[in-house]
């Protein structure tokens, strides 16, 4: 906006005649862009029931437009996001929420990934520990360590020194 003015002033001063200068600012499509942004944020969390898999923000289906208008009315009358989502869930069920509610049937959904991560890390560490102990118990014979050494150096040379010559057989 300010840039626009600067250009306008500059081009007037310099005698330029750019069309853009005299064109008027376009109006936002929505009467209240700020409200519209909130409406969109909420609409993006709601599923269009008649579409294949779209939010009511993206869909042009009749029902989606109706529901978006409903959201706009409710935002306009000061309803919170929670109230609006509850309103929709009351009518269409949890299916309408793209962010599933947290309740007993969805505990697994929400906690599952993090439980898996913890389990994965625990398994990894315990595995590595066990492994280290098991292998440390069996020192290689001189002959074997010699062979391992030659094997590793062969590997390093053919692998284009991929391990950066950092291999130090212990």
């Amino acid at each position: 906006m300010r840039l626009h003015l600067v250009i306008a002033v500059l081009s007037l001063v310099l005698g330029f005649n750019a069309i853009a200068v005299f064109a008027k600012e376009a109006q936002p499509l929505a009467a209240d862009p700020q409200l519209e942004k909130r409406v969109n944020d909420i609409a993006k969390e709601l599923r269009c029931l008649v579409c294949q898999n779209q939010t009511i923000a993206d869909s042009h289906a009749d029902l989606a437009i109706d529901l978006k208008n409903q959201v706009r009315d409710m935002v306009g009358s000061g309803k919170t996001q929670k109230e609006i989502v509850d309103y929709m869930v009351q009518r269409y069920g949890d299916f309408v929420r793209y962010r599933p509610p947290i309740k007993p049937t969805t505990y697994l959904l929400w906690a599952g990934p993090f439980i898996l991560l913890v389990v994965g890390v625990v398994l990894l560490i315990s595995n590595l520990r066990k492994r280290k102990l098991a292998i440390a118990d069996t020192p290689l014979s001189a002959d074997e360590s010699e062979r391992l050494k030659s094997l590793l150096s062969a590997d390093v040379s053919t692998a284009g020194k991929n391990s950066g010559g950092e291999v130090k057989p212990s």
Binding site: L49, V50, D66, Q70, R91, Y92
Partner: peptide
Amino acid sequence: QGNVGIDYGVYG
């Protein structure tokens, strides 16, 4: 307007 439809959760 379809308002009662929405109240009844009509989607099809």
